[in-house]
Design a protein around this nucleic acid. Sequence first.
DNA 1: ATCCCCTGCTAAAACCATTTAGCAATTGCC
DNA 2: GGCAATTGCTAAATGGTTTTAGCAGGGGAT
Lengths: 351, 351
Amino acid sequence: MQKKRVTLADVARLAGLSPTAASMILTGRHDTRLSAEAHAKVHAAATSLGYRPNVAARALRTDRSRSIAFISDYVATTRFASGLIRGALAAAEEAKHVMLLLETGGEPARELQAVEAALDRQVDGLIFAAMRAREVFVPPLSGNVPVVMLNGTSARFPAAVLPDEYEGGRTAVRLLAETGITDSIVLLGHNPADEKGLFRSQSIARRLAGIRDAMAAHGLGFDAELSCWNWEPNHGYDLTKGLLRKRRPKAILCLNDRLAFGAYQALGEAGLTIPGDVSLVSFDNDELASYLRPGLTTISLPHEAMGRRAVQMLLEGQPGQEELITMPTVLRGSLIAPTQPDAVQKLSSTV
Amino acid sequence: MQKKRVTLADVARLAGLSPTAASMILTGRHDTRLSAEAHAKVHAAATSLGYRPNVAARALRTDRSRSIAFISDYVATTRFASGLIRGALAAAEEAKHVMLLLETGGEPARELQAVEAALDRQVDGLIFAAMRAREVFVPPLSGNVPVVMLNGTSARFPAAVLPDEYEGGRTAVRLLAETGITDSIVLLGHNPADEKGLFRSQSIARRLAGIRDAMAAHGLGFDAELSCWNWEPNHGYDLTKGLLRKRRPKAILCLNDRLAFGAYQALGEAGLTIPGDVSLVSFDNDELASYLRPGLTTISLPHEAMGRRAVQMLLEGQPGQEELITMPTVLRGSLIAPTQPDAVQKLSSTV
DNA sequence: ATCCCCTGCTAAAACCATTTAGCAATTGCC
DNA sequence: GGCAATTGCTAAATGGTTTTAGCAGGGGAT
C-alpha cells in the first residue's frame, strides 16, 4: 500500500524519458516517432510501478472519461430493467468503459438533475432507457454528447433501439396457426372497442399490428377479445374465469406472460389441461414463463441484446438510426404439437 | 447551447472577484472572511451564467468525486439485485452522489478490473454486493477508500449490511405456531442429514438457526424435512409431490418462495386447498409471492432498505460495524386464521 | 508614532495528463 | 561541403478547481 499514487512523471523518470514520451507511448499513438527502445523502457517502467492513469486528469484535458451514463425512468420496478442494464453493462465493459446508473422516476426535475450530474462528469454518451416503451422527455443538453434511446423514442434523438414487436406479433400468430387450431382462439389483453382512445405504448401498438396482420394473413379470427388496463396476473385470472363461463377456447393468445399466468390459474381451477384442452402463446419471456407447468411458449423481449446494442451504437460514432432487435421465440410446452411438425423446427430455440 | 462550458473564472470575472473568492463562496466554506456582499455577487454571477463545477478538475484537486462504485457479482440474474441497486441508487442520489455500476460475475480477474476502474475514477467509496450472501473476495486496494459489504462478508472489511435472517426464521415459525397447528409440519428445502458438508450461505445458515430455535421454543417439531440443492420451483414441486404420496401435511414451511411456488402447483394438482388443507409460510417476498392464489405469506428480504443503508454507512464516515436489517413480515392468504387473532395483528404489514 | 491585529481579499502553486511547438542531432541529396 | 529533411525526443502550455500563503489597509492599544 504505497503512500501516493504513481503518476506519469514517475514512470517517465524511471524510464529516463520525458512525460511527453511516456504519455504518447502509453496512450498508444502510432503517429509518433519514438524508438522501439523507448517504447520498451516506458512499458517496463509502467508495469513495474503499477502505473494507472488518473482518469480525472485525463478527462480534464481531453473531455472524455471512458464512461457513459445510463439514465432510466425506473431501474428495478420491472424485471425488464435488469436485462437492459445487464446488456448495457456488458457492452460497456467490453469497450473498457464504465457505466453510471441514474434513475429519474420519469420526473422531469430528476431527469434534468441526472443529465447534469452525468454531463458534469464528462460522460462520453447518454443512454435514455424507458421501462415501458414510450416517447421520452429528454432535457436540453449543453454540449453535444451522443444520445441513444433505449426501449423508447424521442423526437430530438433519432437513434433508438427497440424490440421488433411487429415481427414478434406475427411470429406468435404463426406458432398458433401451425398447431392447426382454426377456431375458438381468444386474444387476452386487448379489445379495440373497449380501448378506444386508451394510450397503449408504441411497442404494444406494433405488437398488436403484427398480430392482426398475421391473423388476417392466415385467414384466422378471434373468437373473443378481452381487454384490461393492467396486464397483471389477477386480471388474466378474472378475464379467463369470466370467459370460461360462456365459452371453451382452444387457444389463448396472451399479450404478456403475466396475463398468461393468470389464465393458467383459471384454467387449472376449471380442470382444463394445457395444452391438451387449451393452447397458450404469450409475450415477454418473463421469468415466470419457465416456472409454469407446462412451460409457457413465449416471444421474448430481448432486453439484454437491446442493452448491448444501445451501448455499441453510442460508442461507435454518431448514431442516427432506429434499430429493431428481433424477439426470439422460446418454445415450451404450452402449445399442442403442430400438424406439420417440421414447420416449427425452423424457429425453435432454447430456454 | 453555448460553445464552451462556463468556468469558475468566468463567474469570478463577472462578480468582479478572484477565482479564489468564488471557489470559497460556492463550496460553502464558513471559515472564510468574505463579505456578505461578495457572497451575493458570486451567487448571482453563478446562477446567471448557469455555472456547473467541472467534476474532473475538482476530483483532480481534491481526490473526491461525489461518486461511489457498486461492485456486484451479478446484477440482474436474480431479482434480488434490482432491489439492492435501487436502494443504493436512491441513497446515493439523496447524498448527491452518482453511482457506478460494475459487474464481476464473481471472477477474480473481473473483480480486480472493476476495482481498478473504480479507483481510477477516484470514487469516494466501494460497495461490494453479493447476490447470494457469502464471503466475498475483495482484491487488494491501494489507497484507503471506505468499503461496505452488502449481503456478503469479507474478513478484511468488517462493515457489512445483511438481512436479519435469524429473526426472520424465528418470525416464520411464530406465524406458524400462532395458527394453532401443532403437528404435521414439513420443512421444505433443507435436511441436515442429507446436507452434511454441503455449503449453504451464512444467511441461510442463520435463517435455519432461527427456525430451529423457534421450533424448539414453541415445543414444535418437523414431521418431515426435505432437501434439495437448488431452491427452484420444479424442486419444490417434485418434493411436495413425493411427500403427498406418503403423508398429508397441515403446514409447510418453505425456505424460499420459489420452492413454495412449486409446492402450490403440487398441492393444486392433488386437489388440496390453501390454506384450508395446508398452510404455507415462506421467505424472500419474491415477486411471485403476490401472484399466487391465495397470496403467499412470506418473510421478505429487505433488499431496498439494505441497499440504502449500505450507501449511508459508506458515506457517513468510517464504517466498521456489521448491521442487520429486519426482514418484514408480509401477511397474505396462505396461512389459516390464527387461534389467537390479536396475536398476529401486532406483526401485520402491508403487501 | 510604533506595533500588532484584524478584515477582506488575491496570487500562485498544485493536482496529473495531453498536446503543441520546436530543438538538436543525424541522414540524404546534389 | 552545404542545405534540407528526417529522426527522436522534450519544454512548456493547457484544462478548471482548490488551497496555501500572504498582501494592503484600517483600527486599536501603548
